[in-house]
Lab assay of single mutants.
Amino acid sequence: MTVLPKDIPGDSLKVTVGTANGKPGDTVTVPVTFADVAKMKNVGTCNFYLGYDASLLEVVSVDAGPIVKNAAVNFSSSASNGTISFLFLDNTITDELITADGVFANIKFKLKSVTAKTTTPVTFKDGGAFGDGTMSKIASVTKTNGSVTIDP
């Protein structure tokens, strides 16, 4: 049996954390987006972790974005102690894959008090994996961190 590389060099799934701005007490939304989904033969499963400074940001909610089908079954998240974990699994293993680019999740943060303008990162942590529509590992994932700026 011969195994051929399935990824064209330079191609990767792009996962990007967005940015937001606000004043202390505001609730802002930071999107997590996927790009080049079709090039990577869709997404059938993924789990990953984001870190944030809990002294500056309070997670209000984490909701599935419009590219997630049947989110009540296929999407899960949790947030505590400065870490947000995400889990997606197409429970049907074929019919509810992520097949389009767009917003995977929206994180709502309540901004805490600061004395001066502060930009705090929302960054990928170690761990996690992504699988394509056949549940094979997506070897190349380009992750881009985001941030939230609090301006009193």
Rank of each mutant, 00 (worst) to 15 (best):
T45L: 09
P66Y: 14
V62P: 08
G65E: 09
K108N: 03
D7H: 13
K39D: 11
I150Y: 14
D11F: 13
V148P: 01
P24Y: 12
L111A: 04
L50H: 10
P31R: 09
D101C: 06
P5D: 08
V62Y: 08
I67N: 09
G146T: 07
A105R: 01
K69F: 11
I8T: 12
K108P: 02
T118Q: 05
A129P: 00
T29R: 09
M1V: 13
T134M: 05
L57F: 08
D151K: 14
A79N: 15
P152H: 14
V68H: 10
K69T: 10
K14D: 15
T118R: 10
K14R: 11
G44K: 00
V15P: 08
L50Y: 06
F104G: 00
L111V: 07
S55Q: 07
N47C: 03
S76C: 07
D95W: 01
M135G: 02
K108G: 04
A38C: 14
V32H: 09
V32N: 06
P31D: 13
N74Y: 03
N145S: 07
A71C: 11
G131E: 00
K69V: 14
A116W: 03
A79H: 15
A139L: 07
S61E: 11
V37H: 11
V3Q: 14
A129N: 00
V68T: 10
P66K: 11
D63L: 12
T16A: 13
V43H: 05
I84A: 00
D101N: 09
K14L: 09
V62G: 09
L13F: 06
N74A: 03
I98L: 05
G82S: 15
D11P: 11
T149P: 15
F88A: 01
S140V: 14
G146Y: 06
D11L: 09
G131Q: 00
V37G: 10
N106G: 03
S136K: 03
F104Q: 04
G146Q: 03
S76H: 06
G10C: 12
T94L: 08
L111P: 05
D95A: 06
K14P: 11
N21C: 13
L4G: 10
E96R: 00
G127V: 03
N47P: 00
D36S: 11
S136I: 04
S147I: 07
V43K: 02
N70W: 04
N91R: 02
L4V: 13
A20Y: 12
T142C: 03
A105S: 09
N91E: 15
